[in-house]
Simulated assay, not measured.
Amino acid sequence: MDAGESPSSGTIVNEFFHRVGGHNTIYLFDETTICKALLPREFYFYKRLKNSLRSFIPDYKGIVKIDMKDEERIRAYRVTEADLSATDLDFTKEYFSPEIVNDIYKKEESCDTSKSDKEINQQTTSKGPECSSQGLADTDKLEYSAYILLENVSSKFINPCILDLKMGTRQHGDTASSVKAQKQMERTKSTTSSKLGVRMCGMQIYSEAERAFRRRDKYYCRSLSVEGFKHHLYEFLCNGTDKLRVDVCIDFLQRLKEMKQVIEEHRGYRFFSSSLLFIYEGQLDSPSKNRTNKADIDIRIIDLAHTTCDRLLHKLPPYEGPDEGFLKGLQNIYDFLYEFVERERKI
């Protein structure tokens, strides 16, 4: 809680400006922390996260309750797990009983939207959470009062270039309804997910020349072919110019290699419908807080609401081996970046 605030006043939160994918509203709690709707499986996963995965996943920081009574001044109140209602945590308390699973997935599906975001081609200034993010985030009322606090991985960047990549060849979770599973399988087949094990969900690129962000939303990105995916991946890595940021690519390649090794070691894990968040500093002359001779970059696994592993205590048979669909996506991203760097070096 910010200095000078009392528990009764809570913390005023704003819509998170640097969100580029997803459909649920995310709020900025403070400079280094975001609020994301508490989904029981994701909450349970964060609470039991293995140390070997921690460097690749945003830090879990606790729980808040969001009060939407005053839409002009939305407030968040820190709470403990003991303060959550039975409805908030039924999924874990009942160990994934069919009744609770069905209730939870109905709640999750109610947050889906068929409304298309406006395709964003216009430039948007980068003043922070107060700026408009129209077209990138739905402004529907919140579906949940309980939120988890997570590390804001973009906070160490001044003008972050951000790419959200949906990973894997399967998007539906273990307990998805047949309708939901069929919908996700059709989407997988119609996008690059089936061929590459990855598809784009959205991006923002900072242009130094224009001093503004360029954005693409998930609806635009879903239409991309394999060649379109490669083209926009290259575009993302050019920092708003026609020149590849080779330094950024090299750092990303090293990070991907490290992540691949860790994922291969996590046998029985399935990261269904998760995303990889790629971030690098778009402001070349930025006095970044952690500036070195290398580019400032980060890659994290996010959106873990459908993640499965032996620690989740579900009643379904455990999976064997690592998540091959996720690894397929990782390998293709790595190969594309490597190809970009090698091509640039030959020029």
Rank of each mutant, 00 (worst) to 15 (best):
2 D>N: 06
5 E>G: 06
7 P>Y: 00
8 S>E: 13
12 I>Y: 06
14 N>D: 04
15 E>Y: 08
22 G>M: 09
24 N>E: 13
24 N>T: 11
27 Y>D: 02
31 E>I: 07
33 T>F: 00
35 C>R: 04
41 R>T: 11
48 R>W: 14
56 F>R: 13
60 Y>P: 02
61 K>H: 15
62 G>C: 08
66 I>S: 04
71 E>C: 03
74 I>H: 00
75 R>C: 11
76 A>L: 05
81 E>S: 15
84 L>R: 07
86 A>M: 14
90 D>E: 14
91 F>G: 14
91 F>L: 15
95 Y>R: 15
97 S>K: 15
101 V>W: 10
108 E>T: 12
113 T>Q: 14
113 T>Y: 07
116 S>F: 09
118 K>D: 11
122 Q>D: 06
124 T>M: 01
130 E>F: 03
137 A>I: 04
138 D>Y: 13
138 D>E: 05
143 E>G: 09
146 A>C: 07
149 L>S: 12
150 L>W: 00
158 I>S: 04
159 N>Y: 09
163 L>D: 08
163 L>W: 02
166 K>W: 03
177 S>C: 08
180 K>M: 08
184 Q>F: 06
189 K>N: 11
191 T>M: 08
193 S>H: 10
194 S>Q: 11
196 L>G: 00
197 G>C: 13
202 G>T: 04
205 I>K: 04
214 R>V: 01
217 D>Q: 09
218 K>Y: 06
222 R>F: 08
224 L>V: 04
224 L>I: 07
232 H>K: 06
233 L>N: 00
241 T>Q: 00
246 V>A: 03
250 I>R: 10
250 I>K: 09
256 L>F: 07
262 V>H: 08
262 V>G: 10
269 Y>F: 15
269 Y>A: 11
270 R>C: 02
270 R>G: 01
270 R>I: 00
271 F>C: 10
271 F>M: 05
278 F>M: 13
278 F>Y: 12
278 F>H: 09
282 G>V: 00
286 S>E: 04
288 S>C: 14
289 K>S: 03
293 N>P: 02
300 R>Y: 05
303 D>T: 00
305 A>N: 06
306 H>T: 04
307 T>C: 14
312 L>E: 12
316 L>C: 12
323 D>G: 01
332 N>K: 09
333 I>H: 01
344 E>V: 03
347 I>N: 13
